[in-house]
Amino acid sequence: MRVEQIAVFLENKSGRLAEITRILAEHQVNIRALSVADTADFGILRLIVDKVEEAKKALRAGGFTVGKTNVVAVEVSDNIGGLAHVLAAVNEIGLNVEYMYAFVNKSSENAVLIFRFDNMDKAIERLQQKGFVLLSGEQICSL
């Protein structure tokens, strides 16, 4: 169970994030979750959106470098220790988290954790074995 995430290269100058969100709004793309990773010189914007292909096309046409990656979305109850359980499960078999971000779903009591692991197949297998709830892209968008 994988979720498509788009990533956009951001040069460190003002107005780039505003430009991206403007383009997405113009194309009726809804952002479900996002994170920005940054260094002194550049940043990477990662987005989960409802219309992946439209978003990619529009951003490309706007002159951005866009990539598509698979991530895994884990739904956990919004309680103490929710993230710790997930991390413990993957850590036990020696998997690494490349990056992660999270959002809390307003319509339920749950939080959604987005992960990129160094070995996605193993991670998904492990999480499913341990009984975690993995969400599909559509599920995230319909939350």
Partner: peptide
């Protein structure tokens, strides 16, 4: 210039 061929979503 970062083209799609070299772009990655990982900082590393």
């Amino acid at each position: 210039e970062v083209s799609e061929d070299i772009f990655s979503d990982e900082i590393r």
